[in-house]
């Protein structure tokens, strides 16, 4: 079986670290959407989950900043953040190493992918895993996108990576899921933290659900920085998911502004089978 599940969601640390800071109504909408995504993921009976997230100075720095890096390890430790802060227990998540090697090899025909046998998982991957596969037993293939240290990979290149991954996944026997985590507009670590750009978020989500490649990749980096903040560059993870589900229409499970989490709560899924 090829790709059988695709989902996208926020990964802001506030989702777990200050869960109660959102209003009860916001929590109901947002966590219900995450629960629905989890139910669909479980129904897909996955053998492995490819998780696309962004770099946050956890694994890479300005001395060595790959555009895309795929994990080839048998296991991954996380979260890198203090347990007392993120409120997710330190654990070891199994890696789908054989699948990862296949994806790296196959996708490399089209995209230059860095690879690593040791990646730490930060909130970018651990927050969604905590909400979707809390037992942390589903083997994963992490893919880290440089959304942080310019020059960043062009949006079109992120879409192409998704297309290449899809072809590589479809050649496999396993039931594979794809989860892209990050965004949308946010200003992490700055005095503007908590600011949201609903117009940007709504527009991007609209283009994402329609899988409108032309509109998804039209944003310049300057425009993203201005309109969606430094964290807005994490739309790259979503665009990888769009490439992997080219031609398919998505479904929004949630669009809820939650300033306490510093993001608009966005959860979506694309029916791929």
């Amino acid at each position: 079986m090829p790709l059988v599940f695709a989902g996208t969601a926020n990964h802001a640390p506030g989702i777990t670290s200050r869960r109660e800071a959102a209003t009860p109504a916001q929590r109901e909408v947002f966590f219900s959407a995450y629960a629905e995504l989890r139910a669909r993921l479980e129904r897909a009976r996955l053998d492995a989950l490819v998780v696309v997230s962004s770099e946050h100075f956890t694994n890479f720095f300005f001395d060595n900043a790959p555009a895309f890096c795929i994990g080839l390890a048998e296991a991954y430790d996380g979260p890198s953040e203090d347990e007392s802060f993120l409120r997710i227990a330190k654990t070891t998540v199994p890696g789908a190493a054989d699948l990862a090697r296949h994806l790296a090899r196959a996708a490399s025909a089209e995209i230059d992918l860095a690879h690593s046998q040791e990646l730490l998982l930060d909130h970018g991957i651990m927050v969604p895993l905590h909400l979707l596969v809390p037992q942390m037993r589903l083997p994963i293939v992490p893919i880290i996108v440089n959304c942080l240290m310019p020059p960043l990979p062009p949006l079109a290149r992120c879409y192409d990576l998704g297309c290449a991954l899809r072809r590589a996944m479809d050649a496999r026997e396993e039931r594979i899921g794809l989860l892209a985590a990050g965004g949308l507009s946010h200003w992490p670590g700055t005095p503007e933290s908590g600011r949201l750009n609903l117009e940007f978020d709504r527009g991007f989500l609209h283009d994402f659900l329609a899988n409108n490649r032309q509109r998804l990749i039209r944003h310049s980096d300057e425009e993203i920085s201005t309109s969606a903040g430094p964290g807005g560059h994490e739309i790259r993870a979503w665009i990888v998911a769009s490439g992997a589900t080219e031609g398919l229409i998505g479904e929004a499970l949630c669009f809820e502004p939650i300033p306490a989490y510093a993001v608009t709560g966005c959860v979506a899924t694309i029916a791929v089978v």
């Binding site: 946050h56 100075f57 992490p188 670590g189 700055t190």
Partner: peptide, 10 residues
């Protein structure tokens, strides 16, 4: 970068 500065502050 704020993502280096905020953890340092913590």
């Amino acid at each position: 970068h704020p993502l280096l500065l905020a953890p340092f502050a913590g």
